[in-house]
Simulated assay, not measured.
Amino acid sequence: MKDELLRYLHEGRAALLWKLDGLGEYDIRRPLVPTGTSLLGLVKHTASVEAGYLGDCFGRPFAEPLPWMLPEAEDNADMWATADESRESIVRLYHRVWAHSDATVAALPIDAPGVVPWWSAPRRNVTLHQILVHVIAETHRHAGHADIVRELIDGEVGVRPENSNLPPGDAAWWLAYRARVESAARAAPDSPAAPIRE
């Protein structure tokens, strides 16, 4: 069971990092939505979250300080990269977190007890299995965010380099597809763009 869960976690990690490939420093850092989400910020956040869940929660704290995760850190400090935080330093951090997390999974039985101190009292007592599922969901969720952000930057999409998991349409096909989706949205009942029906 652990091997299967780790495979899903490894796939999510790889998908998230892949979204940085081929982009310059500005593009991996720039906020593309009103909440400020950026590609490098997603990597920094996901690394930090994984370090906590698969480290601290099982009495195996990640050895490096993560100042942006301290209680006194400013809100959302883990969600963006400062100008002096390089792509390389954040990616290397994520790789070190992976090694630490994978070592935790290898060292403990799947039903090992843990405690998530930032969860409410009724929920905070957990197992390694529960937290692995949680971290997989979190990682894939943020890989999905990264996919949308990357599409907004340069139109590149897909789940991994060898399999985009998308129909093989060319630019004209995608334009026509998008137009159909837009037309259906406008025609939906109660759509502000729907034609008035008498």
Rank of each mutant, 00 (worst) to 15 (best):
A179F: 06
R141D: 00
E198N: 05
A146Y: 04
I28F: 03
D3H: 15
G59H: 03
P65N: 09
G59V: 05
D111V: 13
H134P: 02
E156W: 12
V135M: 12
R186G: 11
L128N: 06
P117W: 11
R178A: 15
E64N: 03
P113L: 08
G41L: 04
G55T: 08
A99H: 00
L166Q: 07
E88I: 02
R96Q: 14
H100V: 09
G59E: 04
S191P: 14
A107K: 02
A107Q: 12
P109H: 05
L93S: 03
E198R: 10
E162W: 07
V115S: 09
P34W: 07
L166E: 13
R197L: 06
R87G: 01
L108N: 01
P168V: 05
P67V: 05
D84H: 02
A103H: 11
V33A: 15
H140P: 02
L128V: 01
V43W: 00
D170C: 10
P34F: 09
L128R: 05
R124G: 10
E25C: 02
R7D: 07
A81N: 06
L175K: 14
R197Y: 02
L32K: 08
Y177R: 14
T104Y: 03
P195A: 05
A194T: 02
R29W: 10
D190M: 07
P61A: 06
A63Q: 05
L70S: 13
L32S: 14
N165P: 01
M1S: 04
P167A: 10
A171M: 05
S86I: 00
E72T: 08
D147W: 01
G22N: 11
P109L: 11
M69R: 14
E151D: 15
R197T: 03
V133K: 05
G114M: 08
R13T: 00
L54F: 00
R124I: 09
H10M: 11
A47M: 00
A193G: 12
N125Q: 10
K2A: 12
E156M: 03
G169M: 02
R13Y: 00
L166K: 04
H145A: 09
